[in-house]
Design a protein around this nucleic acid. Structure first.
Length: 597
RNA sequence: GAACCUGUAGCUCAAUUGGAUAGAGUAUCUGACUCCGGAUCAGAAGGUUGGGGGUUCGAGUCCCCCCUGGUUCACCA
């Protein structure tokens, strides 16, 4: 049992003894004592006043005395207003540090281990244009959350659903057919996803021109968009594709191949991966059957034109189209099918969709519709809705060319990392390959940390010019702290100072040291909270606090130069444990650590 | 038009889910050991938490009314 739980249960006993009151553990608030007060943990006594019928100070005193008498670890207490601040004995922190030092990992020390099968879907790109900043946020979130859930004991399947069919794909195909002169990514020396994306943009531009022209000729906007010849051709292409026209399918395969190759490169550069990749072209028909079953059961209804709908009025929503009049499927149809397929495949306990919050309505409806089909697991579908990434001037718009391209961004990060590292001159003697790895760790670390430290559900602003810094609350700051500890340890080795396997005897701890041990102690519950909230930012914020605390400690106190052997050993063990937590927490974020930088 | 989300220091973000004097970074200014890494550390300055009301021991957080920005409400995905 960890110390907070022990205190909590003793407070319960105190309430019974002193005020004859039973209170459930979750009603007892125990929090970290704020820095400006003395103490380690704080019990909020306000909720007890209606039972004690005494002023807050007196109630706090009474409970404080009770705890001091019966909990060995509580060495002292003070009461300020309604807050009972408890001080924990040095010996406890020392014991804890020793036990962590003897453990292989810390992250698997969960308070409340889970053992569920969880599917996490993320990325889910369209194969008509390259990935951009928004996808980066999606990918990093999905990947990190998967690791966090794994760390809390769950079995995670990372899946990707590639949207490789539909009218948007046909647009770039058509443009390439018309104006591409057969060029390939190799011909032009660009990544395949970028090449295809260019044709998608080209289509859009020409289409708009044509629409404008038709409107000048006196058509209304609706008429113009409907009659515009390029769009008509694209629709014909889609129809040909659905009829398995050999030429069309061949073209589709070729261009999709280019894009997917480009995506793989980007995923690789970002350091993320999947356990299973689904292609919409392979699964899009699955949903139709399920919808038809629902129709037979009378859960859905058919309109005169043959289209199939779900009536959601009992959920205070409108009617929702599930199949078009011509029998073709819409977006939600395939999600119905894939959810059922995945349930059969994985028998999951939870299914998480990492998808932008503009699709809140979609997932709300998806759950309801699956519920109507009597799939009880529908309530275990969870939409992790993250906010948009905006630029200082507002939303990214592909038409206006303000989209931040994923590959460009990664490239810039690596370049900056290289420049910064060169300036510091710490790795001059490293082989070229090793240097590249370090630049990559730092550049990507800066980018990943910058994005993951923000609460997923919030929109965030990204300023391409100055956003990703290397000083302050950043990835490199944490990496730097880690590299520093490494350097310290190798220096110790040079001096033939060993890190002991165990600290023996009574070693006094100063404030900074206790502060660090407390943070290490907090780590498992931080992971638990991050998993619970599905929020990597919890881990990032914790990491920053830990690194900052360590840097202060390192600045104020000499490790190898500490006066006595005992203190040197204590500080070495503490440093090793801090670096272990940094490594594990960064792993949860998917960020690599350079040994030197 | 309706529903939902959002608004915290010049800028980018926190705030233990209703708890103490709202904290960090950045930018600006000032300073730091001949000593374990200066991508560090310390200090100054910066706030009517969009505005107004309410709930209670206590509100950035919960409720109501406005204001701002955004998203969704498609036989698009």
């Amino acid at each position: 049992m960890n110390i907070e739980a022990r205190i909590s249960s003793k407070v319960q006993k105190a309430l019974v003894r002193l005020y004859n009151t039973e209170m459930s553990a979750d009603k007892i608030q125990i929090q970290r004592t704020r820095k400006d007060f003395t103490g380690d943990f704080t019990v909020v006594v306000f909720p007890f006043l209606r039972f004690s019928k005494k002023p807050p100070e007196q109630t706090g005193e009474e409970i404080g005395n009770f705890l001091k008498d019966r909990v060995d670890e509580v060495s002292d207490f003070n009461v300020i207003k309604g807050f009972l601040n408890l001080t924990i004995d040095n010996a406890f922190w020392l014991r804890f540090l020793n036990s962590m030092h003897q453990r292989g990992h810390i992250y698997d020390l969960h308070l409340d281990p889970g053992n569920q099968k969880v599917v996490v879907e993320y990325s889910s790109p369209n194969t008509n244009k390259p990935l951009h900043l928004g996808h980066i946020r999606n990918n990093l979130l999905g990947f990190s959350i998967s690791r966090i859930l794994e760390a809390t004991g769950h079995q995670v399947k990372k899946v990707n659903l590639v949207n490789d069919r539909g009218i948007h794909i046909c647009k770039s195909m058509l443009a390439w057919k018309k104006w591409g002169n057969g060029e390939t990514p190799v011909d032009r020396g660009v990544k395949g996803d970028h090449l295809v994306g260019d044709y998608y943009v080209m289509f859009d531009r020409e289409h708009k021109k044509q629409v404008a022209y038709l409107m000048e000729m006196g058509k209304t906007k609706e008429e113009a968009e409907k009659e515009e010849p390029l769009m008509k051709e694209a629709r014909e292409l889609l129809s040909l594709w659905e009829q398995d026209d050999p030429d069309t399918v061949e073209l589709w395969k070729k261009m999709n191949g280019w894009v997917l190759e480009g995506f793989e490169q980007t995923y690789h550069d970002l350091g993320i991966d999947f356990d299973r990749v689904y292609y919409e072209s392979e699964v899009y028909k699955l949903g139709k059957e399920e919808v038809k079953k629902g129709l037979e059961k009378g859960v859905f209804f058919r309109k005169n034109d043959g289209s199939v709908w779900a009536d959601l009025s009992d959920e205070d929503l409108d009617e929702k189209l599930l199949l078009r009049g011509d029998g073709t499927s819409v977006y939600i149809t395939q999600d119905i099918g894939t959810a059922i397929q995945r349930y059969r495949e994985f028998d999951f306990d939870e299914h998480i969709y990492v998808v932008g919050n503009e699709q809140n309505y979609h997932f709300q409806v998806l759950k309801i519709v699956l519920g109507k089909l009597d799939y009880s697991w529908a309530e275990h579908l969870h939409h992790l809705a993250y906010g948009m990434v905006e630029l200082p001037e507002g939303k990214m718009k592909s038409r206006e060319g303000t989209v931040v391209d994923a590959d460009d961004l990664v490239g810039e990060m690596l370049t900056t990392a290289e420049e910064m590292t060169r300036e510091s001159g710490k790795i001059g003697d490293f082989p070229e390959e090793e240097k590249k790895r370090i630049y990559r760790a730092i550049g990507l670390g800066a980018l990943k940390y910058f994005i993951l430290k923000v609460d997923p559900k919030k929109n965030m602003t990204f300023d391409p010019g100055e956003s990703v810094d290397f000083n302050g609350n950043t990835g490199p700051f944490i990496q730097y702290s880690y590299a520093r500890i490494n350097s310290l340890l190798s220096k110790a080795k040079d001096k033939n100072i060993d890190v002991p396997d165990e600290l023996s005897g009574h070693v006094p701890l100063n404030n900074k040291e206790i502060q660090l041990v407390k943070l290490i102690h907090q780590f498992p519950s931080v992971i638990g909270e991050a998993a619970q909230e599905m929020n990597p930012a919890v881990v990032a914020n914790f990491l920053y606090e830990l690194a900052r605390e360590f840097n202060q400690f390192y600045h104020d106190h000499s490790v190898l130069g500490a006066g006595n052997q005992q203190t040197i050993q204590l500080r070495l063990v503490l440093s090793v444990q801090v670096s272990k937590v940094i490594r594990e927490a960064m792993w949860l974020l998917g960020i690599d650590l350079p040994e030197r930088m």
